[in-house]
């Protein structure tokens, strides 16, 4: 099982910060597309992705128990 995390605008649209879903074996790009199909969050295409708190590329394959965080453009400071 995987945990998907959403923040900022994505969190508002999805309606939750955390969703449990088994997406192991899929690429980051495939998961993004899946999330967009389910929740209608097309802005997810421009978000960065972190797996287990480290940024990854869109080709990265999700492993079992990975936590996948969708990181919209940041605006701290």
């Amino acid at each position: 099982m995987n945990q998907l995390l959403f923040f900022a605008e994505l969190k508002d649209k999805v309606g939750s910060e955390s969703v449990k879903l088994d997406v192991s074996g899929k690429t980051v790009l495939e998961v993004k597309s899946m999330v967009n199909d389910t929740y209608g969050v097309n802005k997810i295409s421009e978000s960065m992705v972190a797996i287990n708190e480290e940024f990854v590329t869109k080709e990265t394959i999700i492993q079992k128990n990975d936590t996948i965080a969708f990181i919209p453009p940041v605006s701290g400071g």
Binding site: A8, E9, A69, I71, P72, V74, S75, G77
Partner: peptide
């Protein structure tokens, strides 16, 4: 911080609000 730290701000105005990216 403005490149790699996952923090976001939402501006609240008199006529609305928006997450800033």
């Amino acid at each position: 911080i403005k490149e790699i730290v996952p923090i976001w701000k939402k501006e609240h105005w008199e006529d609305g609000e928006e997450w800033i990216g």
